[in-house]
Design a binder for these strands. Structure first.
Lengths: 205, 205, 205, 205
DNA sequence: GATGAATGAGCATTCATTCAT
DNA sequence: CATGAATGAATGCTCATTCAT
């Protein structure tokens, strides 16, 4: 890794910490450069302006989350999910999302709280993230309904938004608010509990 | 109503609209006074500064929400809720909360999105709102568990946060994002659907 | 005294207190009207603006001081001051000035400290006061020199300014800084001591 | 000298001129930066606010005056002041103070007139300056009294304040009001005249 | 690439003054 | 005459951004 790439990465890391801690407007560019140990002018060698830095953080987050939840057949370890694969996919996606949130607490805080309500331009990105998560849920549920192991006895729009809200709130509550460093066992238990809730909600079976 | 009280109310109303539309930092004091049709100095006759205006909006919201969800025995119209009153209380609270959100879309947007992530001082108020809603849910569910018509077969912390997340997301989705002016019938249907979800989740009955 | 005259006098009295305590710029018009117990607009019925109020205070001070130090032959009680009347006049003037300062502490503070260094327009008035006091000293000393009982062995300009500085500093020190409420006896002792000093300085005899 | 130090010095110099000419409140920050030929923001790189600039000017003045009047044995050029050293010290101090005033007319104007009566915070600094000069006079006179060449036949408090007032007034009169650029000979004559006055006053000898 | 001094548009806030009631 | 709500010019200060070194 080149020195200049290191500087850039470091600046992004510091920006992430600073924004997560103080919010977009209350974070000054000087906070970031001081934390990174470089001069004021340096940050403008790598990023065109403060807004751009924030947007890069958001887009990297989206990119990395998408990578993280992509279904990898190896995850099933050759075990055929059988007819319940829609259910398994959803479980997988929610688990991966939850893992991703746990491992990226500052960035999760940024997209769930910091970027919210700032301005139209950030709002668009935040919504696209929310929509992506929502669509994952919708797709998997629709699949499950088509295969018959998820009830059709509820409004899809309402249900999926409810699941989305529940998942995001729990992520925020455990990983941002409490900043719990859950052990893998605890994390598994949490994920099971969440999925049980969702299953009840969806009257899966 | 005195002229000066009118001016103050008007300024708060305009501040509400402006903050809801553009966010805290992107709203200038001049936006508010222009919308209200008064001079710059006037706003400082009524409020000590921009931050104070925002905090007053938040605290009024909390105050009004608490008033709105207070259990009023007349709401049951003489119909005895019987042994299911915990369940009825929760339904009542969720219904009132949902009604309140529908009727206060700008203010709901402010507390659910605009005030979030701005700074420590607003954060405290937002959290106290989230905690209040959470406690309503926790209390009613614990009551239901004690009376035996809500299962004890789940983690209270996780479940209540899930319900909170679902309720807030749905409120945001329907009343802020879509800004649907739901008819009372549609609103009732929505509330029923939500409560059905929650019931399934809680394996009530 | 008419009610409106009373209001005007009262406003001047309050302005005097406020300016003396906080300085010209740090005193707000609202401080004065609050102290006087009238509405904001009322003060503009009596005075054209803040500056005018301050100038009136200064000019009244000058007017009253001049009245106070005017030689009144009755003060000598028929006792002929003889050939030392220049010396007696100076003693009389310094005594009257000192009495006047003692009895008008807020106003003395205003002319000696508050009005100083604010702006050109106040400066002119302050200087005219200083010049008047200086001229009294110069005139009496010149008289004494002409009559032969005050030495000519010093620079008039320097000496008179020295005497002026001493007198103003002592006034400020005892009546403003210490705000001593001297008894008449103490005040007499102070005046004697001051005059002894001046006599030594002037090698009077 | 670094560029940034030059800018800072220059800003202080311009602030000194501006405050001396127009007073504290009538001097705008923009007056200072325009005079210095820099942008508005630049001044805030060096000073936290307008008040801080003024206080720095005052404290530098005190610091420099103390340095200027410090007794340096070389000033006596090997000439032993003998038993009259208290008298010599006082003469030395008054001379140095007078020299300092002559060479720092704007700053002297600031501490003697501009800073006076503005607010409590500046007042404290001005008083500490007056007290320091007063103490110099008191100490040297007490020393002279103990050694017997200054009379004990007067009130110390009154006398020292009189001398202080005389010295400050003469400084103000010659160096601020007249802004005379006295030649060294004239300055010496003035100092002799002042000291003669003080000697008479104190019945030294 | 890195630096940090300099920039200046932009913003919140103040406060003497006005004027309709 | 008295009121006090409304005014708006004026000012101090911030902070993202630039650019000469």
């Amino acid at each position: 890794m080149k020195k200049s790439d290191q500087t850039k990465e470091n600046l992004l890391k510091c920006a992430e910490k600073a924004f997560s801690k103080k919010g977009y407007y209350e974070t000054q560019v000087s906070d970031i450069v001081e934390m990174a140990g470089v001069a004021k002018g340096t940050i403008y060698q790598y990023f065109s302006n403060k807004e751009a830095i924030f947007k890069i953080l958001l887009s990297h987050y989206l990119r990395d989350w998408e990578k993280a939840i992509a279904v990898n057949m190896n995850d099933y370890g050759g075990k055929n999910p059988g007819i319940y694969y829609a259910q398994e996919y959803l479980r997988h996606r929610l688990k991966k999302t939850s893992d991703f949130f746990r491992e990226n607490q500052d960035r999760t805080n940024i997209i769930l709280r910091i970027a919210v309500g700032v301005n139209k331009s950030f709002e668009t990105i935040v919504r696209s993230f929310e929509d992506k998560v929502l669509n994952v849920i919708i797709n998997d549920i629709e699949l499950g309904q088509r295969w018959g192991h998820i009830s059709r006895d509820f409004d899809l729009d309402i249900t999926c938004n409810a699941v989305l809200g529940a998942v995001l709130r729990l992520s925020y509550y455990y990983f941002v608010l409490k900043r719990k460093k859950l052990s893998q066992t605890e994390q598994d238990a949490l994920q099971n509990e969440i999925f049980k809730l969702v299953s009840n909600t969806l009257k899966m079976g």
